[in-house]
Amino acid sequence: MAVASAENAVRTGRFTRTFIYLFLLLFALFYLMPLLVMILNSLKPLAEIRGGNMLALPKQWTIEPWLSAWSTAQVGVEPTGLKPFFWNSIKMVVPAVVLSTVMGALNGYVLTKWRFRGDTILFGLMLFACFIPFQIVLIPMARVLGLLGLAGSTPGLVLVHLVYGVGFTTLYFRNYYAAFPTELVRAAQIDGAGFFRIFWRILLPSSGPIVVVSVIWQFTNIWNDFLFGASFADLDSMPMTVALNNLVSSSTGVKEYNVHFAGAILAALPTLLVYIVAGRYFVRGLMAGSVKG
Protein backbone atom coordinates (compact mmCIF):
# COMPACT_ATOMS: atom_id res chain seq x y z
CA MET A 1 0.00 0.00 0.00
CA ALA A 2 1.30 3.42 -0.89
CA VAL A 3 2.04 5.32 2.29
CA ALA A 4 3.86 8.63 2.27
CA SER A 5 7.24 8.31 3.93
CA ALA A 6 10.59 10.09 3.96
CA GLU A 7 12.07 7.29 1.85
CA ASN A 8 10.05 7.81 -1.27
CA ALA A 9 9.88 11.60 -1.00
CA VAL A 10 11.69 13.75 -3.53
CA ARG A 11 15.12 14.81 -2.31
CA THR A 12 15.57 18.53 -1.78
CA GLY A 13 18.30 20.92 -0.68
CA ARG A 14 18.52 22.41 2.79
CA PHE A 15 17.25 25.81 1.71
CA THR A 16 14.17 24.39 0.01
CA ARG A 17 13.53 22.19 3.00
CA THR A 18 13.61 25.12 5.42
CA PHE A 19 11.27 27.01 3.17
CA ILE A 20 8.84 24.10 3.00
CA TYR A 21 8.78 23.72 6.78
CA LEU A 22 8.27 27.44 7.34
CA PHE A 23 5.45 27.47 4.88
CA LEU A 24 3.79 24.44 6.43
CA LEU A 25 4.18 25.88 9.91
CA LEU A 26 2.58 29.12 8.83
CA PHE A 27 -0.40 27.31 7.39
CA ALA A 28 -0.75 25.08 10.42
CA LEU A 29 -0.83 28.15 12.68
CA PHE A 30 -3.34 29.81 10.40
CA TYR A 31 -5.65 26.82 10.53
CA LEU A 32 -5.22 26.35 14.26
CA MET A 33 -6.02 29.99 15.04
CA PRO A 34 -9.80 29.59 15.36
CA LEU A 35 -9.39 26.55 17.59
CA LEU A 36 -6.92 28.48 19.72
CA VAL A 37 -9.35 31.37 20.10
CA MET A 38 -12.10 28.97 21.04
CA ILE A 39 -10.04 27.15 23.64
CA LEU A 40 -8.61 30.32 25.19
CA ASN A 41 -11.96 32.03 25.47
CA SER A 42 -13.71 28.94 26.77
CA LEU A 43 -11.31 29.03 29.73
CA LYS A 44 -11.94 32.71 30.63
CA PRO A 45 -14.62 34.30 32.77
CA LEU A 46 -17.16 36.21 30.69
CA ALA A 47 -15.91 39.59 32.00
CA GLU A 48 -12.50 39.08 30.38
CA ILE A 49 -14.03 38.43 26.96
CA ARG A 50 -16.18 41.52 27.29
CA GLY A 51 -12.95 43.40 28.05
CA GLY A 52 -12.25 43.15 24.35
CA ASN A 53 -9.05 41.18 23.72
CA MET A 54 -10.10 37.80 22.32
CA LEU A 55 -6.55 36.69 21.63
CA ALA A 56 -5.15 37.33 25.10
CA LEU A 57 -4.41 34.48 27.48
CA PRO A 58 -6.89 34.15 30.35
CA LYS A 59 -5.86 36.15 33.44
CA GLN A 60 -8.02 33.92 35.54
CA TRP A 61 -8.23 30.29 34.29
CA THR A 62 -11.59 28.61 34.83
CA ILE A 63 -13.39 25.48 33.64
CA GLU A 64 -16.71 26.90 34.76
CA PRO A 65 -17.89 27.61 31.14
CA TRP A 66 -17.28 23.94 30.23
CA LEU A 67 -19.29 22.68 33.17
CA SER A 68 -22.01 25.14 32.41
CA ALA A 69 -22.15 24.22 28.71
CA TRP A 70 -22.27 20.53 29.57
CA SER A 71 -24.90 20.50 32.30
CA THR A 72 -26.50 23.79 33.32
CA ALA A 73 -26.65 26.22 30.40
CA GLN A 74 -29.99 27.38 29.14
CA VAL A 75 -30.80 25.44 25.95
CA GLY A 76 -34.15 26.62 24.65
CA VAL A 77 -36.36 26.80 27.71
CA GLU A 78 -34.71 24.26 30.01
CA PRO A 79 -31.41 24.83 31.85
CA THR A 80 -30.12 21.36 30.97
CA GLY A 81 -26.82 22.09 29.26
CA LEU A 82 -25.84 20.08 26.20
CA LYS A 83 -25.61 16.77 28.08
CA PRO A 84 -28.98 15.25 27.15
CA PHE A 85 -28.57 16.28 23.53
CA PHE A 86 -25.11 14.78 23.42
CA TRP A 87 -26.69 11.45 24.34
CA ASN A 88 -29.44 12.05 21.81
CA SER A 89 -26.76 12.40 19.15
CA ILE A 90 -24.99 9.25 20.31
CA LYS A 91 -28.26 7.31 20.25
CA MET A 92 -28.82 8.51 16.71
CA VAL A 93 -25.28 8.22 15.34
CA VAL A 94 -24.31 4.77 16.58
CA PRO A 95 -27.21 2.79 15.10
CA ALA A 96 -27.21 4.88 11.93
CA VAL A 97 -23.47 4.35 11.36
CA VAL A 98 -23.58 0.65 12.19
CA LEU A 99 -26.66 -0.05 10.08
CA SER A 100 -25.52 1.96 7.06
CA THR A 101 -22.07 0.35 7.15
CA VAL A 102 -23.48 -3.17 7.43
CA MET A 103 -26.01 -2.53 4.67
CA GLY A 104 -23.38 -0.92 2.46
CA ALA A 105 -21.13 -3.94 2.97
CA LEU A 106 -23.94 -6.35 2.12
CA ASN A 107 -24.89 -4.32 -0.94
CA GLY A 108 -21.29 -4.20 -2.11
CA TYR A 109 -21.00 -7.95 -1.57
CA VAL A 110 -24.12 -8.70 -3.60
CA LEU A 111 -23.29 -6.22 -6.35
CA THR A 112 -19.84 -7.71 -6.93
CA LYS A 113 -20.06 -11.38 -5.98
CA TRP A 114 -23.70 -12.31 -6.60
CA ARG A 115 -24.22 -10.47 -9.85
CA PHE A 116 -27.70 -10.45 -11.34
CA ARG A 117 -29.37 -8.97 -14.36
CA GLY A 118 -29.53 -5.18 -14.09
CA ASP A 119 -27.15 -4.95 -11.14
CA THR A 120 -25.12 -2.11 -12.66
CA ILE A 121 -28.28 -0.11 -13.30
CA LEU A 122 -29.38 -0.68 -9.71
CA PHE A 123 -25.97 0.42 -8.48
CA GLY A 124 -26.15 3.52 -10.69
CA LEU A 125 -29.52 4.38 -9.19
CA MET A 126 -28.17 3.93 -5.68
CA LEU A 127 -25.40 6.37 -6.49
CA PHE A 128 -28.04 9.05 -6.99
CA ALA A 129 -28.31 9.15 -3.21
CA CYS A 130 -24.85 10.73 -3.21
CA PHE A 131 -25.95 13.59 -5.44
CA ILE A 132 -29.42 14.53 -4.23
CA PRO A 133 -29.30 17.69 -2.07
CA PHE A 134 -30.76 17.25 1.40
CA GLN A 135 -33.25 20.08 1.00
CA ILE A 136 -35.11 18.37 -1.83
CA VAL A 137 -36.19 15.40 0.26
CA LEU A 138 -37.31 17.32 3.35
CA ILE A 139 -41.01 17.36 2.55
CA PRO A 140 -41.34 13.85 1.09
CA MET A 141 -39.28 12.52 3.98
CA ALA A 142 -41.49 14.30 6.52
CA ARG A 143 -44.50 12.62 4.90
CA VAL A 144 -42.85 9.19 5.00
CA LEU A 145 -41.80 9.59 8.63
CA GLY A 146 -45.33 10.68 9.47
CA LEU A 147 -46.83 7.64 7.75
CA LEU A 148 -44.42 5.35 9.56
CA GLY A 149 -45.17 7.03 12.89
CA LEU A 150 -41.51 7.89 13.34
CA ALA A 151 -41.78 11.66 13.11
CA GLY A 152 -39.94 13.55 15.85
CA SER A 153 -38.12 10.50 17.18
CA THR A 154 -34.58 9.14 17.23
CA PRO A 155 -35.50 6.04 15.17
CA GLY A 156 -36.91 8.43 12.57
CA LEU A 157 -33.59 10.29 12.37
CA VAL A 158 -31.73 6.98 12.19
CA LEU A 159 -33.88 5.98 9.23
CA VAL A 160 -33.25 9.27 7.42
CA HIS A 161 -29.50 9.02 7.85
CA LEU A 162 -29.53 5.35 6.93
CA VAL A 163 -31.36 6.06 3.68
CA TYR A 164 -28.99 8.88 2.84
CA GLY A 165 -25.83 7.11 3.90
CA VAL A 166 -26.38 3.77 2.22
CA GLY A 167 -25.58 5.23 -1.20
CA PHE A 168 -22.12 6.26 -0.05
CA THR A 169 -21.35 3.11 1.90
CA THR A 170 -22.52 0.93 -1.00
CA LEU A 171 -20.20 2.83 -3.32
CA TYR A 172 -17.25 2.30 -0.97
CA PHE A 173 -17.84 -1.39 -0.42
CA ARG A 174 -18.70 -2.18 -4.01
CA ASN A 175 -15.46 -0.69 -5.25
CA TYR A 176 -13.50 -2.40 -2.51
CA TYR A 177 -15.04 -5.81 -3.12
CA ALA A 178 -14.69 -5.47 -6.89
CA ALA A 179 -10.96 -5.99 -6.35
CA PHE A 180 -11.59 -8.94 -4.02
CA PRO A 181 -10.85 -12.24 -5.85
CA THR A 182 -14.05 -14.01 -6.85
CA GLU A 183 -12.22 -17.35 -6.75
CA LEU A 184 -12.22 -17.05 -2.94
CA VAL A 185 -16.00 -16.87 -2.95
CA ARG A 186 -16.16 -19.86 -5.27
CA ALA A 187 -13.76 -21.82 -3.10
CA ALA A 188 -15.92 -21.05 -0.08
CA GLN A 189 -19.02 -22.14 -1.98
CA ILE A 190 -17.42 -25.49 -2.77
CA ASP A 191 -16.34 -25.72 0.88
CA GLY A 192 -20.02 -25.45 1.74
CA ALA A 193 -20.32 -21.93 3.11
CA GLY A 194 -23.58 -20.12 2.40
CA PHE A 195 -24.29 -16.50 1.48
CA PHE A 196 -23.92 -15.01 4.97
CA ARG A 197 -21.11 -17.29 6.08
CA ILE A 198 -18.98 -16.31 3.10
CA PHE A 199 -19.67 -12.69 3.93
CA TRP A 200 -18.99 -13.07 7.62
CA ARG A 201 -16.01 -15.43 7.52
CA ILE A 202 -14.24 -14.55 4.27
CA LEU A 203 -15.06 -11.01 3.12
CA LEU A 204 -15.64 -9.07 6.31
CA PRO A 205 -12.34 -10.04 8.00
CA SER A 206 -10.54 -8.60 4.98
CA SER A 207 -12.54 -5.38 4.92
CA GLY A 208 -10.84 -3.47 7.75
CA PRO A 209 -9.69 -0.38 5.83
CA ILE A 210 -12.96 0.16 4.02
CA VAL A 211 -15.01 -0.34 7.20
CA VAL A 212 -12.94 2.42 8.81
CA VAL A 213 -13.56 4.71 5.85
CA SER A 214 -17.27 4.02 5.96
CA VAL A 215 -17.49 4.54 9.73
CA ILE A 216 -15.54 7.82 9.69
CA TRP A 217 -17.47 9.17 6.76
CA GLN A 218 -20.83 8.25 8.19
CA PHE A 219 -19.97 9.31 11.72
CA THR A 220 -18.82 12.80 10.74
CA ASN A 221 -21.69 13.37 8.36
CA ILE A 222 -24.39 12.22 10.72
CA TRP A 223 -22.91 13.81 13.82
CA ASN A 224 -22.49 17.16 12.06
CA ASP A 225 -25.87 17.11 10.36
CA PHE A 226 -28.02 20.05 11.29
CA LEU A 227 -30.76 20.17 8.67
CA PHE A 228 -32.36 16.77 9.32
CA GLY A 229 -31.94 17.21 13.07
CA ALA A 230 -33.63 20.59 12.98
CA SER A 231 -36.40 19.35 10.67
CA PHE A 232 -37.31 15.92 11.98
CA ALA A 233 -36.41 15.89 15.70
CA ASP A 234 -38.55 17.00 18.60
CA LEU A 235 -37.33 18.20 21.99
CA ASP A 236 -36.58 14.67 23.26
CA SER A 237 -34.61 13.54 20.22
CA MET A 238 -32.88 16.80 19.28
CA PRO A 239 -29.24 16.14 18.35
CA MET A 240 -26.21 18.05 19.63
CA THR A 241 -25.90 20.33 16.60
CA VAL A 242 -29.43 21.67 16.94
CA ALA A 243 -29.02 22.11 20.67
CA LEU A 244 -25.78 24.00 20.12
CA ASN A 245 -27.61 26.32 17.77
CA ASN A 246 -30.31 26.87 20.36
CA LEU A 247 -27.68 27.55 22.97
CA VAL A 248 -25.73 30.03 20.88
CA SER A 249 -28.51 31.85 19.09
CA SER A 250 -30.87 32.42 22.00
CA SER A 251 -32.06 35.99 21.75
CA THR A 252 -32.77 36.65 25.43
CA GLY A 253 -30.41 37.20 28.35
CA VAL A 254 -26.67 37.67 28.38
CA LYS A 255 -24.58 36.13 25.54
CA GLU A 256 -22.23 33.83 27.42
CA TYR A 257 -19.50 33.61 24.80
CA ASN A 258 -17.20 31.48 26.93
CA VAL A 259 -19.99 28.93 27.38
CA HIS A 260 -20.75 29.02 23.67
CA PHE A 261 -17.12 28.33 22.80
CA ALA A 262 -16.98 25.44 25.24
CA GLY A 263 -20.23 24.05 23.81
CA ALA A 264 -18.98 24.29 20.25
CA ILE A 265 -15.82 22.39 21.15
CA LEU A 266 -17.87 19.77 22.97
CA ALA A 267 -20.00 19.34 19.87
CA ALA A 268 -16.95 18.91 17.63
CA LEU A 269 -15.05 16.65 20.03
CA PRO A 270 -16.41 13.22 18.99
CA THR A 271 -15.62 13.67 15.29
CA LEU A 272 -12.18 14.98 16.21
CA LEU A 273 -11.65 11.89 18.34
CA VAL A 274 -12.73 9.56 15.54
CA TYR A 275 -10.29 11.23 13.16
CA ILE A 276 -7.40 11.02 15.58
CA VAL A 277 -8.04 7.35 16.35
CA ALA A 278 -8.81 6.11 12.83
CA GLY A 279 -7.58 8.86 10.50
CA ARG A 280 -4.56 6.91 9.38
CA TYR A 281 -6.76 4.12 8.09
CA PHE A 282 -9.05 6.65 6.45
CA VAL A 283 -6.43 7.84 4.00
CA ARG A 284 -5.21 4.29 3.41
CA GLY A 285 -8.72 3.05 2.76
CA LEU A 286 -9.50 5.83 0.32
CA MET A 287 -6.32 5.01 -1.53
CA ALA A 288 -6.96 1.26 -1.55
CA GLY A 289 -7.42 -0.04 -5.05
CA SER A 290 -6.46 3.26 -6.64
CA VAL A 291 -2.76 2.45 -6.57
CA LYS A 292 -1.35 -1.02 -6.86
CA GLY A 293 1.29 -1.26 -4.16
Partner: peptide, 20 residues
Amino acid sequence: VHPSKRNIAMVFQSYALYPN
Protein backbone atom coordinates in the same frame (compact mmCIF):
# COMPACT_ATOMS: atom_id res chain seq x y z
CA VAL B 1 -27.08 -29.46 -7.19
CA HIS B 2 -25.15 -26.96 -5.05
CA PRO B 3 -21.32 -27.16 -5.38
CA SER B 4 -20.91 -28.15 -1.74
CA LYS B 5 -23.32 -31.10 -2.15
CA ARG B 6 -21.49 -32.68 -5.09
CA ASN B 7 -18.67 -34.11 -3.01
CA ILE B 8 -16.05 -32.49 -5.18
CA ALA B 9 -13.01 -30.39 -4.34
CA MET B 10 -11.36 -27.81 -6.49
CA VAL B 11 -7.88 -26.31 -6.69
CA PHE B 12 -7.94 -22.86 -8.26
CA GLN B 13 -5.37 -21.15 -10.42
CA SER B 14 -4.89 -18.40 -7.84
CA TYR B 15 -5.10 -21.06 -5.06
CA ALA B 16 -7.91 -18.96 -3.49
CA LEU B 17 -6.62 -19.41 0.04
CA TYR B 18 -8.62 -17.43 2.60
CA PRO B 19 -6.21 -14.62 3.50
CA ASN B 20 -7.55 -14.05 7.01
